[in-house]
Amino acid sequence: MRRGQTVILNLVAVAALGGFLWLAEGNFDGYKIQILNLIAINIILALSLNLIYGFTGLFSLGHAGFMAIGAYICSILIMTPDQKDMLFLLEPAYDWVQNAQAPFLVAVLAGGLVAAAIGALVGFPLLRLGDDYLGIATLGFAEIIRVLANNFPRLTNGALGFKGIPDYANLWWNFGWCLVTLYVIVRLLKSNTGNVLKAIRDDEAAARAMGVNVFRYKLLSFTVGAFFAGVGGALLASLLTTIDPKMFLFTLTFNILMIVVAGGLGSLSGTVMAGIGITVLLEWLRVVENPVDIFGYELPGVPGMRMVVFSLALIMIILFRREGLMGMRELHWQSLFKVFSRGRA
């Protein structure tokens, strides 16, 4: 297939998505729109984790930390000084926190950039560690961020967190950022850099022997991943309108890891599909936790049941279908056409 055709088909797909969002905005109720928003944000987060883990082989469990950074920076920038005046009850905010203000786009970018900068900073020492040690160290980093958020009331309002963050993150912003993420990561992986990242994942020693500066590429992948994790966190803060340190527990990273593993480590299209599927599943499972009324019988809601089903699903995937939905394969226009033409023949 020629390159021109692919570009046209991609543009058509984006236009179709736009049309769908336009219809959704007009006709869906608030709950369904919320789920669509969560899908977009989860895809952003999962794509960035897949870049770090699935394509570069860096087992990072620090996503919640980067999200927290993005969420706090963005919230500080989009709340008005009056709002912050009311909010910081424990201790008054620092002057620059109090007065800082920026439009939403700049705030989200700032959230991502600060997350990326901190990602590069912690990546410097941590990326020298191997697989599971890296996992536990990045997990430690995320926990430290959370403890810091709890203990700097003049910056983060301590355990109370922020309330009433302006809800700018609508469908257009979220899906727009989702497309940007997808585009940047696809371009990155299609370039020579992408080949180097995959080479590092498949055999680090061989890549090093070929003269690749392994550390520099690892740092690049980690920083880009941290940037989009920060962006995802920023959008999430504006979508939910409240954040506090408790929100950024390990569970958050776990959910994203689940999407990446279910979609296939090293498959972007798998991540997108799993992002849609798992977000819907997670919302749908909320039903289990609420009381149900079946033919007059009152079934009590079971708190915790959602995560029981969810974690069981993860164990099953790892045990019986380790490669996830797509493995390392991707869904292209070409493969789609093949499926259809085979169906016709």
Binding site: T251, F254, L257, V261, V302, P303, G304, M305, R306, M307, V308, F310, S311, L312, L314, I315, I318, L319
Partner: peptide, 16 residues
């Protein structure tokens, strides 16, 4: 990853 799954599973079974 399996052990992370088991950990969440046992924790939530305990909550249930």
């Amino acid at each position: 990853i399996s052990s992370i799954g088991v950990s969440f599973f046992l924790q939530n079974v305990a909550i249930v």
